[in-house]
Amino acid sequence: MKISHYFELEDHVTGGISESVAHQRAMLDQLGLQYTTEPTLEADVFHCNLMGPRSVWYARRARSKGIPVVANTHVTAEDFGDSFRFTNALAKPLKPYLRWAYGLADALVCPSEYNQGLIEGYTDTPTTVISNGVDRGKLEGFDSLEAEYRDRYDLESPTVFLVGHVIKRKGLETFVELARRLPDMDFAWFGPLDLSLKGRETTQLIENAPENCTFTGFIDDIRGAYAAGDIFCFPTHEENEGIALLEAMAAGKPVLVRDIETFSWLEDGADCLKASGDGVAPFVDALERLRDPALRDRLGSNAADRSEAFSLEAVANQYQSLYTAVTP
C-alpha cells in the first residue's frame, strides 16, 4: 500500500496542524507503510491534511480514478475565529466551503469526539475519531532544562504556563487577567507572537500585560517550556483537541482547563482541574488550590497515566485500520 500523504502549505502552516502531520508521518514510519509527501495519483490512498485548492483539485481527480480520499478535519469554522487578523471575517464563508471540501473525501479523520460532532453537521461523509497523539519521545530529558529556562525567563515556582501560538481564542484575555489577579505568581506563555498577524485587541492585551506575565516568543527547544512550567493553564474557548495539553500531561504537569465540551473526556479533580462558570474567578480559585504541591503532584501523575492512551504507538494502528477499510 502506498499513500500520498499531502500537507498543503506545509512550509507556511505551523502550530497544532503541523505537529499533527509530523505525528502522522511518525506513525506511518512505525507501521512500515510506504508514503510520499507529494500529492500524486500514483497511490492507493490520497490523504490530505488541509483542504486548500490544490488538495481539492487532487481529491476530485483521485475520486474520479477510484482512489480513496482521506482528509483530516483540523480546520472548522468554529475554531477559525479569534486566531489571526481577518480570521473572524473569514470564519462565516469558510463553513460552506469546508462542507463542500470535506464532502469530497471518502473518510474523514476527526481528532476528538467534539470535533466529530461538529463535522457531522457539515457533511455526511463517514467520520472516524483518531487522536492527534502525543510524541512522548520529543519530551525526553525535558526536566534537565529546568534551571536554564527558569533563569532565561526569570521564572519562579509555581509558574503557570501555556504552550502554542499566542491567539485570543486560546484564552489570552483570561491568561493575562489571571496574572494581574495573582501578582505573586509567574505566568509564561511559550510560543510565537507574530504580532504583525494579530488584531489590535490581541496586540494590546500582550503589550499591556502585567510584569509577572511573560510572552517568550518562539523558543528553540519546546522541552524548555515543560521544564520551566509547573501548572499548565489552558483557558481556550474552542479547541479541536489540543496537542500541547497532551504534551503537558505526558510531562506529568497538572492541568487546568476551561470546562468546555472538547475536554469532556477529562475528569475534574482526578486528572485535571476544570474552571466552570463565567469570568476569571473560577480560574483564580483553581490556581489558589494548585499552590499545594501535593495536589499538583497527584494531578500531574494521574495526567501522565491518562496520556499513555494517546502515545503514537497506541494511536498508529487506528490509521492502519482506516487505510485498510477505505481501500478496495
Rank of each mutant, 00 (worst) to 15 (best):
K168G: 00
K95T: 11
L90E: 05
E120Q: 15
T123N: 04
G81L: 04
E78H: 12
T123M: 09
D106M: 08
H47D: 07
G137C: 08
F86V: 08
R99G: 01
L104H: 00
Y122K: 06
A101K: 02
Y153L: 12
V160K: 01
S112M: 02
E148N: 07
G133V: 11
E113P: 03
E156A: 08
Q116G: 02
Y58C: 14
L139Y: 08
F46G: 11
A59E: 01
R152S: 09
A62P: 12
T76L: 09
R61D: 09
E120C: 14
G81E: 08
D44V: 11
R152M: 15
L50C: 09
G133Q: 03
T128A: 09
D79C: 09
V56E: 13
Y102E: 09
G121L: 14
E78F: 09
S131G: 12
I130L: 08
K168E: 07
Y149R: 04
T87D: 03
S83P: 01
V69F: 04
Y122E: 02
A62C: 14
E146F: 02
E140I: 10
L145Q: 08
C48S: 15
Y102G: 11
H74C: 12
H47C: 12
T125V: 13
V75Q: 14
N115W: 01
T159Y: 07
C110V: 06
F46Q: 03
S112V: 04
K65D: 11
P111T: 06
P68A: 14
E148Y: 03
I167H: 02
D82Q: 11
P68Q: 07
P68N: 10
D151R: 13
D151A: 13
A71V: 15
K95G: 04
M51D: 06
H47T: 06
A77I: 00
L108P: 03
N88Y: 01
H74E: 07
G81Q: 08
P68Y: 05
G121R: 15
P93I: 00
H47R: 05
I67A: 07
K168V: 02
V129E: 08
T159H: 09
D79M: 11
E120P: 03
T87W: 01
T123W: 05
L162P: 04
V56A: 14
